[in-house]
Design a protein around this nucleic acid. Structure first.
Lengths: 164, 164
DNA sequence: GTTGGTGCAAAGGCTTTGCAGGTGT
DNA sequence: ACACCTGCAAAGCCTTTGCACCAAC
């Protein structure tokens, strides 16, 4: 079940507004323009739950500006990823999910029921050490989920076939 | 009667022939038929390199029987996966690769250059313990690769911009 | 003869791209 | 004014599916 990702605590002035403006400043500095689609996407990103697909985000943007096209969302997510504002993760088959670059957790995804659990970054420390020591390889535990089987599905699948 | 893909027509039986026949016995036991495509796919699987895509395998089969269609390869790989003979792994974006179920290694894939390194199963022991202890989750380190950056690409990307 | 497998073509799901016209600076 | 960005439609990539014929048992 979900936990992390609730809206930030309410303050006098919305803290996401500051973050949005800060990102838009980077966009401008890079020669980019501040468009409605871009601003809306950012506000949706900073406000909502984590683990949303491009289509989820598009729907939320389109609730306010119905003409914003899915391809625009993809293009903007791409740019935001280059700026380090968001990262996308592949949680098994199906569409990628996007979340804020500040999130450092990984994901455990059940191959049987599709449920997802967040895994703190330090779950991956030993694997990271092994990869670095043996191959000089720096793992990125956020990009692809770790697949496997959740507790509930292990119980169900466990006894192979008992006959009918 | 065709000799195509049958047990080696001339000469002593090879070790893969035995394995092929053993798999085909399981297929028959399950009510399946032994077809040319199926036999050829198996011989290609047992003979060749690991980490081949469905299309790679199709090409190799088609070198002998040009009419075998890619969709037949997919269907047969699917069935072989249910029998535990093969597993497929997603090595980042791009097509899945298939290898023998007896392979237990995982994969480290460079996000920058796409190079792939095999990681022994025990690299994942600590992660597996964490996942089990904290979430009762049984990881399957073979299904999805661990992404990251290889040594060479870290050197190139590492120093941001050193000028000319 | 029955069942299951196959070739082919078409669709499916997710994402990217080409283009012509609109928009921010 | 200029480059950038956008909406739209179409393509692309990998994989699955529907269907009629054929082959294995």
């Amino acid at each position: 079940v979900t936990s992390l990702g609730g809206p930030t605590a309410v303050g006098a002035a919305s803290p996401s507004d500051e973050r949005i403006e800060s990102v838009l400043a980077s966009v401008r500095a890079r020669g980019g323009r501040v468009t409605t689609a871009r601003r809306l996407l950012l506000s949706v990103l900073f406000r909502g739950d984590t683990h949303r697909t491009a289509e989820d985000l598009a729907s939320e943007v389109q609730a306010i500006a119905p003409d914003v096209h899915l391809s625009t969302i993809y293009r903007n997510l791409d740019e935001l990823e280059q700026l380090g504002v968001v990262v996308h993760a592949h949680l098994g088959h199906g569409p990628a999910t996007y979340h804020l670059g500040s999130d450092t957790h990984g994901h455990l995804v059940c191959e049987t029921c599709g449920s997802m659990t967040e895994a703190p970054a330090d779950f991956f420390d030993a694997l990271a050490s092994n990869a670095r020591a043996h191959h000089g390889f720096a793992i990125d535990h956020r990009h692809f989920a770790v697949l496997g089987q959740c507790q509930a599905c292990q119980r169900v699948d466990g006894p192979p076939i008992t006959g009918a």
